[in-house]
Computed example of a mutant assay.
Amino acid sequence: MRHVARKRFGQHFLADGSVIDAIVAAIDPRPGQAIVEIGPGLGAMTNPLVERCGRLTVIELDRDLARRLRERPELQVIESDVLRVDFTALAASEPMPLRVVGNLPYNISTPILFHLLASAGVIKDQHFMLQKEVVQRMAASPGVKDYGRLSVMLQWRYDIESVLDVSPEAFEPPPRVDSAVVRMLPYPVAPAVAPALLGELVAVAFSQRRKLLRHTLGRWLEVRGFGGAFDTQRRAEEVPVAQYVALAIEIGGTPT
């Protein structure tokens, strides 16, 4: 039966064979690896992935698609909103770190990325199809216009690389934006910083991008009684990720 893409799920199904091959080559799945695919849809990536790794865990919210996927014994199907899935618990049932892949719904891609942050310690790598603009923001360096809160909050925990650009014509139905595949490699040792504190600090810093930090982060630091040295005569996009992390640690951020 033909499946009609559902707008509320942000469904755009990959249909270009050469793009699918390039993505699978970038992922390079191996037999026995613990691979989790978010949003398998009609199986465009599911099929070549499972051919190479033997088994696959898939997370699918659309109950019609989940029902079809359950007919395949090589798939472990989790019918759920991915934002409700505990990836740390999922990894506990596997003998090796998770490899997470997927063509993410563009309307909730950022919440998914932040949800996965909490489980970065049990994940080997992540390969996602995303809106190209989002990938550019994720990988941006200080001093460029795309560098912002998303850049800092992901780069403190991952090495991020854009590996493939994908045009709208590769999908059915085609989205209205260009897409890209991103590779995210969690750092083996995470900085000893409280993620919630770092997140608050960065959100304040980028709350008024055009103003110097003394108007935003500087006042936030004063309220906290911070007496250390931090140059607030800069704009938020001029501060490297490592300096945000160091500041969070200095003002008392420890993992919770």
Rank of each mutant, 00 (worst) to 15 (best):
P175S: 00
L65R: 12
P29W: 09
Q33V: 15
M138G: 01
A89Y: 03
R137V: 02
G54Y: 09
P168Y: 11
L69A: 10
E169C: 08
R219A: 11
L198M: 07
E161W: 05
P29R: 03
G143C: 11
E169W: 04
S109A: 15
L213C: 04
S141H: 09
G121E: 05
H3I: 11
S151T: 01
L75T: 11
L217V: 00
R210C: 01
Y147N: 03
R176E: 14
L217M: 01
D86M: 08
F128G: 04
A190I: 01
K124M: 04
E71R: 15
L116S: 10
G10Q: 08
Q76G: 07
V239M: 10
I251V: 13
T88S: 09
V239G: 07
V122M: 00
N107T: 10
E94C: 14
L201A: 02
V135T: 13
P73M: 03
E238P: 00
G17M: 02
A118M: 03
A15Y: 12
R52W: 11
V152P: 05
E74W: 09
G102H: 10
E133S: 02
H127P: 06
P40D: 14
T254S: 09
E51C: 02
Q131P: 07
D16W: 03
H3Q: 09
L90Q: 07
V163G: 05
P191W: 03
P48N: 00
R55K: 15
H127Y: 14
G228V: 08
D64Q: 14
L65G: 10
L83Q: 13
M129W: 06
S179T: 11
A118W: 08
S119F: 07
L213V: 06
T232F: 08
I35K: 06
D28K: 05
Q11F: 08
L113R: 03
D28S: 13
F171M: 06
E222Q: 14
I123Q: 00
L117V: 09
G43Q: 12
H3P: 06
V134A: 08
